[in-house]
């Protein structure tokens, strides 16, 4: 079962959102689909999921349904740890 990484950004994106979206793309390239599923929610399309998770601000990263990052743009080490906790074998 792949680890699920859901990334939330506002519209228009703030600098933190831009950074997190770019990071999501890098993870999607680095890991095959059978290991990691990356979903991006931007702007109004994000509102339904955003409210479902009861998030309070963006950027945000949710791993396997658990909020790991909210309101800041993390570095990759922090995201690696969050994904590792979500069962992803980091390399």
């Amino acid at each position: 079962m792949p680890t699920l990484m859901e990334v939330f950004s506002g519209d228009p994106p703030c600098p933190g959102c831009v950074a997190v979206l770019a990071m999501a793309d890098r993870y999607a390239e680095r890991y095959p689909a059978e290991e990691l599923t990356v979903k991006k929610y931007v702007g109004r399309d994000a509102l339904e999921k955003y409210e479902a998770y009861n998030l309070s601000c963006v950027p945000a990263i949710v791993v396997n349904g658990v909020i790991k990052i909210e309101g800041i743009a993390p570095d990759e080490g922090t995201v690696d740890n969050a994904l590792r906790e979500g069962g992803l074998w980091i390399r």
Binding site: G43, A46, C57
Partner: peptide, 12 residues
Amino acid sequence: FGSEPPCAKCRQ
């Protein structure tokens, strides 16, 4: 006026 969903600065 802020982004949707709001970023931290928009909320502040």
